[in-house]
Design a protein around this nucleic acid. Structure first.
Lengths: 194, 194
DNA sequence: TTCTCTGATTAACATATGTAAAGTGGCTTT
DNA sequence: AAAGCCACTTTACATATGTTAATCAGAGAA
């Protein structure tokens, strides 16, 4: 992906930035391409990286007490992500982030760009907007969990985020929904019969 | 609560602020006291208010398709809250925020103080930190929902946020946990017998 | 005291999901 | 072509929770 294409995506995603802001931002970022199932951030390490997904999809998961992977994040294109526990508390993260398809990223140092932001009120907005997007996505998921049975959650996600089903394995989406692949398979069958 | 007490709580909650920042922040805020079950933000209206809870607890809920209240937020002392859909998207909010006990608040205009923040990098940090706290709380709830059965969620919340059980009705906490009061009652009994 | 309101508890029943295991199909490798 | 791998499906069974309704308990109010 060319620098121009990268800049175009950034300007679309953050329309309040001027040309120079995008250039500055890009100058602080590394462009990185991952094949499927390549990991960028590993659980147990302190990661000061945040990344913007130019193309593709990332999942963030942790390993629970039983040794099972649990997908906490499924992040589509044009969103910013990082390991929140490491970024906010300087502690080793419990999450591993890996691609679920070929994925193109802008990787940057969180502190470094945040410091930029304290001097440029448009750049700080990148963070404010990303935080807001994260909060809204998480609130929606909590709402789904509290208000909807698994089958309704499936329906709602299919409508709201169809790209998840197009790009990620069913088992990853099931995990993200908080249900088993077995149950998801039953739900899909039930709905195809009705 | 005196102005001095309010300032002391703010300085404890946001240690990076200097004395003048706190004074400026307070000068933009209204002090407000709610009795139990008084609402501050009503669903259906656009609310540009955010509030800092000096003392007490607030709950934010919406009414689902069946006409049931669903508690999306239970916010303890020394946290900032507002209606995210209204604040971030200028749309009428779907949430009602009301007190679950006597509650003392600092209410401020979100835009106004955010604008202050663009000129003062310590004040913008109030927002960044609040966003981060919100994100971490929400991630933890999603984790609980995905990784834990209702009874384990109860245990985890009891350990992590005992003040919820001390301050709010069981029915509100059950709702927040995504279970019915009947089920919570069973869980509590089961655990008292074991 | 009695009545009312509200929250919490208990009971009875139905059911969707979890779990464990086996089976299917596609794809790759040898 | 055979073996292996992986995602997905299907089956069978157990059980915790949802639902509905009745009951209990405490706080006020009349």
């Amino acid at each position: 992906m060319t620098l121009e294409e990268q800049a175009a995506i950034l300007r679309l995603s953050f329309p309040f930035l001027v040309k120079e802001d995008v250039e500055v931002f890009l100058s602080f970022a590394d462009y990185q391409v991952l094949q499927n199932k390549e990991s960028l951030i590993q659980a147990g390490k302190i990661s000061r990286k945040a990344f913007f997904i130019l193309k593709g999809m990332m999942r963030g998961f942790f390993i629970n007490e039983k040794g099972e992977e649990k997908n906490i994040f499924l992040r589509p294109e044009h969103t910013i992500t990082g390991a929140p526990d490491s970024l906010f508390n300087q502690s080793p993260t419990k999450y591993t982030f890996e691609s679920v398809t070929e994925t193109h990223l802008l990787v940057f140092d969180y502190e470094e760009v945040l410091t930029l932001g304290y001097e440029n009120s448009r750049i700080i907005q990148i963070f404010l907007r990303s935080y807001q997007e994260n909060i809204q996505t998480l609130i929606y998921r909590v709402e789904s969990m509290i208000d909807k049975a698994p089958e309704q959650r499936y329906e709602a996600l299919l409508e709201r985020s169809p790209q998840f089903f197009e790009t990620a394995y069913n088992k990853h989406v099931a995990n993200y929904l908080g249900i088993t692949p077995v149950s998801l398979s039953r739900i899909i069958k039930r709905r195809s019969e009705a």
